[in-house]
């Protein structure tokens, strides 16, 4: 059966132990380039070739399981040493192309690894939560309407107040998210904003204002957590996740 080489991450050190990888396959290392180590698994191409993958990637259960295994390996390596994770399901035609990659892009990998050494990625999500004073209570009391006997006009006036209120709330919330992102970025080595998560995936229906990732010096983690705490409140809930392997700050084209 033809086999391929699945690449998880690149680092400078070899771990003595590593959890199993995708499809419960063992993980091994390939050394090469300027002192680099690639963490890989040998995978059967009848499941990890281009055609089978195209089908499998539409199967959410398969993707979830594969992603979990991928992250398990990356997290284990990242917990021990500076790591450049590679995108999910990056499969090469054997070990040769991986060695070639380490040679060819060795300096790029070293630069990325230097950038993340002594630093970890933290995620911060900001949600708009209904504030206690009822920010959406735009419905004016019916008695106050000056359009008695003109129900259509009263209706449109109500809709107008409602739309305006929504627009204003939206604008304020977006400004707030910008402010939070700037404040967190100022304390970080690097920061970036990802697309807000789909509520059907995150299972949370509050409006996500910010889905940020921040590369933070180990020494400043407490400071960062404290700042994130202070920035929340007043209709915005901040949720800090991590530490993560530095996925958001190490993506490089590995082809």
């Amino acid at each position: 059966m033809p086999e391929g080489t699945y690449l998880y991450a690149v680092a400078r050190d070899v771990l003595s132990q590593c959890p199993d990888g995708v499809a419960d396959l063992p993980v091994r290392t390939i050394s090469g380039g300027p002192g680099l180590v690639a963490y890989v698994s040998t995978v059967p191409l009848d499941r990890f070739g281009e055609q089978p993958l195209r089908r499998s990637l539409e199967d959410m259960d398969w993707v979830a399981e594969t992603a979990r295994a991928h992250h398990r390996v990356v997290d284990a390596v990242a917990a021990a040493t500076a790591t450049a994770p590679v995108r999910l399901v990056t499969v090469y035609d054997g070990d040769g192309p991986v060695r070639d990659l380490l040679d060819r892009r060795g300096q790029d990998f070293l630069r990325v690894l230097d950038h993340v050494t002594g630093r970890r990625e933290w995620g911060v999500k900001a949600y708009a939560v209904a504030s206690a004073d009822g920010a959406d209570g735009q419905d004016e009391p019916a008695a106050a309407t000056p359009h008695a006997g003109r129900p259509g006009t009263a209706y449109l006036q109500r809709r107008r107040a409602n739309l305006r209120g929504r627009e204003q709330i939206r604008r304020q919330a977006l400004q707030r998210a910008d402010h939070i992102h700037r404040a967190l970025s100022a304390l970080s080595v690097a920061g970036c904003r990802h697309r807000a998560q789909d509520p059907s995936l995150s299972g949370r229906h509050d409006w996500m204002l910010l889905n940020g990732a921040y590369l933070v010096d180990d020494k400043r983690e407490d400071e960062f957590a404290e700042l994130a705490r202070d920035l929340g409140g007043d209709g915005v809930e901040l949720r800090v996740t991590g530490p993560w392997a530095p996925y958001s700050f190490t993506v490089m084209e590995t082809r």
């Binding site: 209706y155 449109l156 107008r160």
Partner: peptide, 27 residues
Amino acid sequence: VERQCVRRMEQGDLTDDQIETLGVTLM
């Protein structure tokens, strides 16, 4: 349509009767 009505109402290019008719229809 509702947003367009609100916008035109704000711009003042609808008569009171037109606003009332549109409002009732939308309601």
